[in-house]
Simulated assay, not measured.
Amino acid sequence: MAFVKRLFGWLILGPVAVVALALAVANRTLVTLSWNPFERSDGIEMPLFVVAFVMFALGALAGGFAVWMAQGRWRREAKTHRAEVRLLSGELAQMRSDPALPSAR
């Protein structure tokens, strides 16, 4: 199963890496990145592919953070359920070891 996952990952990530490399090679033109829309002189120049990759990375991080925040409720519930299972497992082990109680095996 792990081999299939690894193969599937390479079949997906391989072409994505080739496309990203082609994008980087095709977009080497310098662009000016400026925070002031009225003054073009103050800004930094960098290749277009760097801007694109940075924006992609920031978007992936923002999306991951949004999903992580949205799943907070489920993580809290899982944590309380794990604690409850731990408590009940301990109680069951104690009941099974008590000779005075009828057999619960």
Rank of each mutant, 00 (worst) to 15 (best):
M1Q: 13
A2P: 04
A2S: 07
R6D: 15
L7S: 06
L11F: 12
L11M: 14
L11P: 01
I12M: 10
L13Y: 13
L13I: 12
P15V: 11
V16C: 04
A17M: 11
V18F: 15
V19E: 11
A20T: 10
L21E: 14
A22R: 01
L23H: 11
A26L: 09
V31Q: 10
L33G: 02
L33Q: 03
W35Y: 07
N36R: 07
N36V: 10
F38H: 06
D42T: 07
G43T: 07
E45V: 03
P47M: 03
L48F: 11
L48Y: 02
V50S: 01
V51K: 08
A52L: 14
A52E: 04
F53I: 08
F53E: 00
V54I: 10
M55W: 13
A57R: 08
G59L: 03
A62K: 08
G63F: 07
V67Q: 00
M69Y: 12
A70S: 12
W74I: 05
W74S: 10
W74F: 13
R75D: 08
E77W: 13
T80C: 05
R86G: 12
L87Y: 11
L88P: 01
L88M: 14
S89M: 13
L92G: 07
M95F: 06
M95P: 03
S97H: 01
D98G: 00
D98H: 04
P102Q: 02
A104V: 08
R105A: 09
R105I: 04
